[in-house]
């Protein structure tokens, strides 16, 4: 099993946190994982993306030259990375912010209005969990949602226990949106 996903957004959207949670869930599921974050010098607003690889085998490069799946949380991320998705791959598009039209016919585009869903769930800060849920749903839950929730819980720490249910709800709503 080899899963590749590039999760990209602008600084503050939580693209990196989503990737970390996914990586942690992979380790909890006893897989080899690499998580590589990339961001600029600005503390807010610049491009922020991560490469996550989950595999049963030894992982070579932690940097994705091409990717099985792209999670594009904003317009800039979509236009920048659309071309590196492997033929047959998937793009999870945050349709709340991405306005560009798809340019390829050899990948699957899944549109999810993440910002609207996050607001409905109760906080626009959950937009990254919405899109993470959408990713997992589109990939047949290769990691169980409960494992990912456990990873979220560990990542956030005991002081944030109260917000876990809302974030799980956000994941579930994201997953439901890709059915």
């Amino acid at each position: 099993m080899l899963k590749e996903v590039l999760i990209s957004g602008f600084g503050g959207q939580g693209s990196l946190l989503a990737g970390q949670i996914l990586a942690l869930a992979g380790v909890m599921d006893d897989k080899n994982v690499t998580y590589r974050p990339v961001y600029g010098t600005e503390k807010r607003g610049g491009l922020a993306f991560c490469d996550v690889i989950i595999s049963d085998e030894e992982i070579g490069s932690p940097a994705l030259e091409e990717t099985e799946c792209l999670v594009a949380m904003d317009e800039n991320s979509f236009t920048r990375f659309e071309s590196i998705v492997r033929p047959g791959g998937t793009v999870i598009v945050n349709s709340s912010l991405v306005t560009s039209q798809p340019t390829r016919d050899d990948v699957t585009y899944v549109n999810v209005p993440c910002n609207e869903i996050a607001e409905k769930v109760g906080s626009d800060k959950t937009v990254n969990m919405v899109i993470l849920g959408a990713y997992l749903g589109s990939q047949d839950y290769f990691l169980p949602m409960d494992t990912v929730e456990a990873a979220l819980r560990e990542e956030m720490g005991p002081s944030k226990e109260k917000i876990i249910p809302m974030n799980r709800h956000a994941m579930d709503e994201g997953a439901a949106a890709v059915k």
Partner: peptide, 9 residues
């Protein structure tokens, strides 16, 4: 910088 920033087991 990649190894410093990345996460791995």
């Amino acid at each position: 910088a990649t190894l410093g920033a990345m996460m791995e087991s």
